[in-house]
Design a protein around this nucleic acid. Structure first.
Lengths: 198, 198
DNA sequence: CTCCCAAATGGAAGTTACTATCAGTATTCT
DNA sequence: AGAATACTGATAGTAACTTCCATTTGGGAG
């Protein structure tokens, strides 16, 4: 009977708040003291939960940093692109839609997160693995759009090249803090679309 | 005064033998019980060294699997390709030379190693990170061959695409045990050279 | 409103990867 | 042969996880 209804019960809301509290305090501590120098116990203490609770919300320390919600957004947007677009064009449009609509504040947070991830070997490695599995999820959509089988080597190569080029753009964006990942990525994909002329 | 001279002193030879013993027993145990179920202590015991010695030879448990000697071989061979070859053609030739000259026995060992790596998340993640840094090492050679600066976005994209396509071939080879990685990789690079027609 | 069940929490105890230190032993050099 | 040096093993410690159990808290039924 409240005027502005929160969608779920008290329990759910509390859980969401706990999760956010842990993540927030963790990122703050990482920024302050560094990733390795911050223990899970310290994070738990800062968020005022027990260490066991920390691991209930995040299976590993890495996951506090790595967890995000972009995959389903990107996949959904890619699927919704007009079928007459080629694979690369559809991906470019997807990125423009999804990343372009992010508030400036979130873009900045994401940049910081990327910097942290790239600077910590464990995080970097796991996030590459994530990227690979994200792209594997794209593979079937790509196959469909290209009218090919998902096992087709051509599809696999295209998917691989897309990973590689996205990664290259990400590294480029990380190297230059003034740059925009979205712009770099779009330019890189255009370059790929043109056959990677050197 | 021995007739067949070992190239180095006793100390070096002993170290090399210890290193190999550790690696060999580790891989055998991994194959037998699985990676996670095999503790470092168990490996050390099997190789008849102390756990501390294990970590002197391999900084982490992962490194026992991940360590190999291909990077310098590949880089050297790439550098030695005739300058009139384009980047992709030079890489194809490099792979033919280096991988093509491996004894069948080693090819088989490498296949098993790849299977293990792909099946264990930590190993997979770290090996992707290794792949990225290998390709970064290639980037300057690629830039030189293309007559471009190492920071050039076109070079970065090309390098990224090469990573991606190699990875795609690797996954393809892992999926089909009867296939040859070298052949798949060569076909994939040819496909990239042709502009990835779908 | 109360009772009851299910879910969330905290705490304790254990495992494993990894680090640091240090004393003892083996190898190499002179 | 003796001194300098490198390698090894043992011990103790840290931190990331896991497992288990007792306690609390929220939600629904009567």
């Amino acid at each position: 009977m409240q005027s502005q209804a929160e969608p779920y019960g008290l329990r759910e809301r509390k859980k969401a708040r706990t999760r956010e509290a842990i993540q927030e305090h963790a990122l703050a501590l990482f920024a302050e003291r560094g990733y390795d120098a911050t223990t899970v116990d310290a994070i738990a203490a800062a968020a005022e939960v027990s260490p066991s609770t920390f691991f209930r919300y995040f299976p590993t320390k890495e996951d506090v940093v790595l967890h995000d919600r972009y995959d389903p957004l990107l996949l959904g947007a890619f699927d919704a692109q007009p079928p007459e677009l080629g694979v690369i064009a559809a991906l470019r449009a997807t990125m423009q839609e999804v990343l372009g609509s992010l508030p400036a504040e979130e873009v900045e947070r994401e940049r910081q997160r990327a910097t942290l991830i790239l600077s910590v070997p464990e995080l970097r490695a796991r996030s590459l693995d994530q990227l690979a599995s994200t792209m594997a999820a794209f593979a079937s959509e790509i196959a469909q759009r290209a009218g090919r089988d998902a096992e087709d080597p051509a599809v696999r190569n295209m998917t691989g090249a897309l990973i590689g080029v996205s990664l290259a753009a990400l590294l480029g964006a990380a190297a230059d803090p003034a740059s925009s990942y979205l712009e770099l990525l779009d330019a890189s994909l255009a370059h790929l679309e043109a056959g990677l002329p050197l």
